[in-house]
C-alpha cells in the first residue's frame, strides 16, 4: 500500500489553519497592516495582563499578595503555593481527570470509527439514518439534557462514579467526531477498497489495514477534540459526582475556592497547574490540538 503519497492532500484538507494547500501561495498583504497591527498590540496587552497576574500571584505568599495587590512583582519567588496545592488533593483530581479523559477518548474513537465506517461503507438506508441522527445531535446543548441525564445516571446506580462523567461526556463528543471521521473516510478512494477486496479482505481487515491508517488525521482530530471536552468538562462532574474520590480537576478547582478561601496564590497555583498538561501537549502537538479545538468550537 502506498499510503504516503495519498496522505498529503488528505492532511492539508482536514487541518483548517494548516500549511497552505499546494499550488496556492500564502496570502500576503502588500503593505504592513497598521490598524490590525495596533489592534494586535492592544489585544496582546489584554491577553498578557491577566496571564501575568495569574503567574505572578502564584509566586508570592498569601500575605504579600494581600499587601501589594495583583500587579506587584513578587519580592522573592516562592513556590510554596504550588507545593501546597500538590500536597493536597490535586494529584488525585488530576488522576481522575486523566482516567476520564483517556476512557472518554477511547470510547468515542471506538464508537465513532465503527459507526463512521458503517455510514460510509454500508449500503443501507439505515446507516444514512444513523448519520442524520448524529447531525441532529450536534444541535443538542448538554445543559438542556442534564436533568434526564441525572435521572438516567441515578437509575443506573452510577451517581458519584467516574463512569457518570465518562458516559455522557463521550456521548456528547460523538456527533462532532462522527462528522469529522465520515468526512475523512469518504475521501478514501474506491480503488483502494477494491484492491483490498481482491485480496479477499473481510470488513474487519479492511477497517484495520485500510480505513484506520487512511483516516488517522481525522482520528487524531476527533481524539483531541474528545480529550479536550472531557478534560475541560464541568457541568457533568458538577451535577453527577460529589465525593473527593471522584472529583475531577475542573470541579476540584471550583471547590478550591471554598477550601483555599482568600489564599489567592494557592488558588491560582491550582489554576496554573490545571493548565500545564494541556500547555505541554500544545508545545508538542500544536497542529492536532488546534484541530481538536476547532472541533470543540464546532460543538
Amino acid at each position: 500500500m502506498s499510503t504516503e503519497t495519498d496522505l498529503r492532500p488528505e492532511l492539508a484538507r482536514d487541518t483548517p489553519p494548516a500549511p497552505p494547500v499546494r499550488g496556492r501561495r500564502p496570502f500576503r498583504l502588500p503593505k504592513a497592516n497598521y490598524p490590525a497591527g495596533i489592534g494586535a498590540f492592544v489585544w496582546l496587552v489584554i491577553v498578557i495582563v491577566p496571564l501575568y497576574i495569574l503567574v505572578a500571584s502564584t509566586l508570592q505568599s498569601r500575605q504579600e499578595y494581600l499587601d501589594n495587590g495583583p500587579l506587584s512583582l513578587p519580592d522573592s519567588i516562592s513556590f510554596d503555593s504550588y507545593r501546597q496545592v500538590l500536597e493536597g488533593d490535586f494529584p488525585r483530581y488530576l488522576l481522575n481527570t486523566l482516567i476520564v479523559t483517556a476512557s472518554c477518548t477511547a470510547l468515542v474513537l471506538t464508537l465513532a470509527v465503527t459507526v463512521s465506517y458503517s455510514i460510509v461503507r454500508t449500503r443501507s438506508r439505515l446507516s444514512q439514518r444513523a448519520f442524520q441522527l448524529f447531525l441532529l445531535g450536534l444541535a443538542i446543548p448538554s445543559q438542556a439534557v442534564i436533568i434526564p441525564i441525572y435521572l438516567i445516571i441515578t437509575e443506573l446506580s452510577l451517581y458519584d462514579t467516574l463512569l457518570a462523567i465518562i458516559l455522557p461526556t463521550a456521548a456528547f463528543s460523538l456527533p462532532v467526531s462522527v462528522l469529522i471521521l465520515v468526512g475523512t473516510m469518504r475521501d478514501i478512494s474506491e480503488e483502494l477498497y477494491e484492491s483490498m477486496a481482491l485480496d479477499g479482505a473481510r470488513s474487519v481487515r479492511v477497517l484495520f489495514q485500510l480505513v484506520i491508517p487512511m483516516s488517522r488525521a481525522g482520528i487524531s482530530t476527533a481524539g483531541v477534540f474528545s480529550a479536550l471536552s472531557a478534560w475541560n468538562g464541568f457541568l457533568f462532574p458538577l451535577i453527577l459526582t460529589q465525593s473527593r474520590e471522584t472529583r475531577v480537576l475542573t470541579l476540584g478547582l471550583y471547590d478550591f475556592v471554598g477550601e483555599f478561601r482568600v489564599d489567592i496564590p494557592a488558588l491560582l497555583a491550582a489554576v496554573v497547574l490545571s493548565i500545564v498538561p494541556i500547555f505541554t501537549a500544545y508545545l508538542f502537538a500544536r497542529r492536532q490540538l488546534i484541530n481538536g479545538l476547532m472541533g470543540v468550537g464546532g460543538k
Partner: peptide
C-alpha cells in the same frame, strides 16, 4: 477502566 470504575464508586 470502565469496568474498574463501575465497581469503585463510594456508596457502593
Amino acid at each position: 477502566t470502565l469496568a474498574a470504575c463501575g465497581s469503585d464508586g463510594p456508596g457502593g
